[in-house]
Amino acid sequence: MSAEAFLDVQGVTKRFGGFQALSAVSLQVRQGERFGLIGPNGSGKTTLINCISGTLRTDGGRIVFADQDITTLPAHRRTRLGIARSFQIPKPFTSMTVLQNLMIPIEYAGRGHRDGVVDEAMGILGLMGLAAKAHVPSAALTQIEMRKLELARAMAARPRLLVSDEAMAGLSSTEVDDILAILFELNQRGITIVMIEHIMRAVMRFSERIAVLDAGEKIAEGGPDEILADKRVEKAYLGE
């Protein structure tokens, strides 16, 4: 299994004080895969993403990405290796314009300033429907535009693995379809995608495989149909 895993999460544990947020969570994502991560509120999805992207240190377990143990690597090194994430609660660089926000990962994620990077950034903004806002201060965006900026900025890091943490919350159903189309397109280009989402319609349509977290434990994993049929998943979402 782990030989073909692009991202290999092995028994990752995370505690906040006495609270166990993740209990020995293991999952494998294959290269080029569309992977869904779901679970009720507070089940530990964002915490797991924080451990994978490096903003949190794990209390146990190992994380391997592209055959490299990244468990103790600082987050910026992981980004340069090809892991980019969007934040569930938008964290834009507020003193910068939308375009400047994208220039940070373009400049820092290991590629430096070259000709054409502004075009590249503008291309991403066009894709996300933010082209008209390129020169607007990012602090002036609406909440929904900020979510789009989150995804755009993660794309600008030219990831090999893109983790989107609830990028679609609050979007209209046509906007959800637009973003899904973009993610499908990125996936076509070879980018592996992990999608965290509460909008079931979107995750079920998008994901080839899905893992379900509940109270910090992985309770199910499989194709969308298997997950929908799973009794434990139903119980986790609907209660007894």
Binding site: T79, A84, K91, P92, F93, I104, G110, R153, A157
Partner: peptide, 18 residues
Amino acid sequence: RGLTAIRDNEEAAECMGV
């Protein structure tokens, strides 16, 4: 530019490769 990113949001800066 990196320092500005840190001032605006240190966690996001780190995740964007800074």
